[in-house]
């Protein structure tokens, strides 16, 4: 039920953004289509089951997006610095980190976030281990690398998805 509802909301927002208007004769077909599609597609999907529909989770989603965007810009300054410096200062390697997140969707979000933040790229996800290609390896210890890479996002996703 919750899955269908969230899918419906997402489809509706996409429809409104695509048409760029909220006139009634545009909204009605969108409502019908979004309803049918969300019923057909989402009968047994469970990706949003863990998403909590509380104000706190919503607020944390906004904060998470904000933190994420700052990290994205920081990572790009880092990349630009590395690419344009003549000696190419890289020190790459693949490290392993562990996450405490349980839900699949939260893990997917975490993997995507890691990929877009400074110097890290998720290569493989296996149960609770993430194998991450790190452009500037500082430590190959699981605990320390985890503190360095995933902790700052984990605490938000923990609240949002539980």
């Amino acid at each position: 039920m919750k899955n269908i509802f969230i899918t419906f909301l997402i489809l509706m927002v996409v429809w409104i953004l695509l048409n760029n208007s909220v006139q009634i004769n545009i909204l009605i077909p969108g409502l019908i289509t979004a309803f049918i599609v969300s019923l057909l597609v989402c009968r047994q999907c469970e990706i949003f089951t863990d998403y909590k529909l509380t104000p706190k989770a919503f607020a944390y989603t906004i904060i998470f997006l904000f933190v994420f965007f700052i990290e994205l810009i920081k990572s790009n300054l880092d990349v630009i610095k590395r690419v344009l410096s003549p000696s190419l200062p890289i020190n790459p390697g693949i490290v392993e980190v562990k996450t405490t997140l349980k839900s699949k969707f939260a893990r997917m979000m975490l993997a995507n976030t890691i990929t877009l933040t400074p110097g890290t790229l998720t290569v493989e996800v296996k149960d609770e281990s993430f194998f991450i290609h790190w452009i500037d390896v500082q430590t190959d210890d699981i605990e320390k690398a985890g503190n360095e890479i995933v902790k700052k996002f984990e605490k938000y996703l923990e609240v949002i998805y539980g």
């Binding site: 590395r82 190419l88 877009l116 290609h133």
Partner: peptide
């Protein structure tokens, strides 16, 4: 430019993804 300069596939992916997204 990073795509040309970086030494292997994984580093190229790093640069490519981040810089092209932003």
């Amino acid at each position: 430019i990073g795509l040309i300069r970086m030494p292997d596939v994984y580093n190229r992916l790093q640069v490519g993804t981040k810089a092209s997204t932003l």
